[in-house]
Simulated assay, not measured.
Amino acid sequence: MRDFGAGFGYLLAGLRWMARHRRDYGLGLVPGLVTLVLYAAALTALAWWGTDLVTAATPFADGWSSPWLGLFRGLLTVVVFCLAMLGAVLAFTAVTLLIGQPFYETLSERVDRSVSPDGTAPESGRSLWTELWISARDSLRILVRVALCGIVLFALGFVPVVGQTVIPVIGALVTGFFLSHELTSVALQRRSIDLRERLALLRSRKGLAWGFGAPLGLAFLVPFVAVFLMPGAVAGATLMARELVGEPVVRPTPRV
């Protein structure tokens, strides 16, 4: 429980850091706003053409009698849209971090410098394009893991009692773990720590990852909240990454 509380504390610390460094807040908002616009366009298109898509994908049902044809395709359309919404929530962080790689790299470096005893920040020495490639590749690997976990949890959700009590809690913890990974990857990748080692670090401190990511994942379910929390989440994840690798932290100097 101590690690869980510490993880939540890092989330709050990241939000406080952004409150003290307001000039950086606008920088951190840009990627989330771009992602939000892209998601809104994609989901609007799915809502508009979703019925046509389902009709094209189920030609075997063309001969079904009414009302079964309408009920089947209507239910399938709702399921497809709900799955798309779930995928959008789960993938929002990965997509935003990919789009905003240069923005969040800069933000994470500034957090590192503000709490480092010598005022410096680790640098990978890699080019921007190399960083983008590594980030995209690792994010895809994580999304595959998330999708597999999501399918299993979705199926278990139909189990009576357990599916309505235990599974949602497990789902929140799984989402929180992967959110923590995606957000700390900005700082850890800059330290040349690869995907396997990042996952190992977080598995060794699962309570820390859950305490940081689970509340954030629940907050991200509220429309638009993710956009405004992302800068603070990146700042908090950078602070947490320093603990994961054993780097000292000094009290940041306020700057407005």
Rank of each mutant, 00 (worst) to 15 (best):
G163V: 08
T175P: 01
G74E: 03
A6S: 14
L33W: 01
G26L: 15
S185Y: 02
R22A: 11
P59V: 08
L15V: 11
I134N: 01
W49T: 00
S65G: 15
R203D: 14
I170A: 15
L43H: 05
E182S: 10
T55H: 11
L15C: 07
T35W: 07
A56K: 06
V227M: 05
L69C: 00
P117G: 09
V34H: 02
Y104P: 00
G28F: 11
G246I: 09
D194Y: 00
M230T: 13
V34M: 03
R203C: 07
P215Y: 09
A214F: 08
G74V: 05
P160S: 10
V115K: 08
D118K: 09
L202I: 09
L239P: 10
T238N: 05
R196V: 06
G74F: 04
L202Q: 12
G7P: 12
E109H: 11
P254G: 04
G9C: 09
L132I: 15
L46K: 12
V256N: 14
V89W: 15
Q189Y: 00
W133P: 00
G50K: 11
F81H: 06
Q164E: 12
L244H: 04
T175W: 15
A84H: 06
L76S: 06
T93W: 01
M18H: 01
A241G: 07
H21L: 04
G232N: 07
K206C: 00
L202N: 06
V245K: 05
R190H: 07
R113L: 14
V161N: 11
A187L: 04
P215Q: 11
D3C: 00
S124T: 07
E105I: 03
T58G: 00
V34A: 12
M85W: 15
L218D: 10
S127L: 08
G171E: 08
P223R: 09
I170K: 13
A57G: 00
A6I: 05
R16P: 00
V162Y: 13
A209T: 07
T35P: 01
D194L: 02
L53E: 05
L33R: 00
R191K: 05
A19F: 14
Y104Q: 00
R242S: 13
R126A: 08
A187Y: 07
L90H: 13
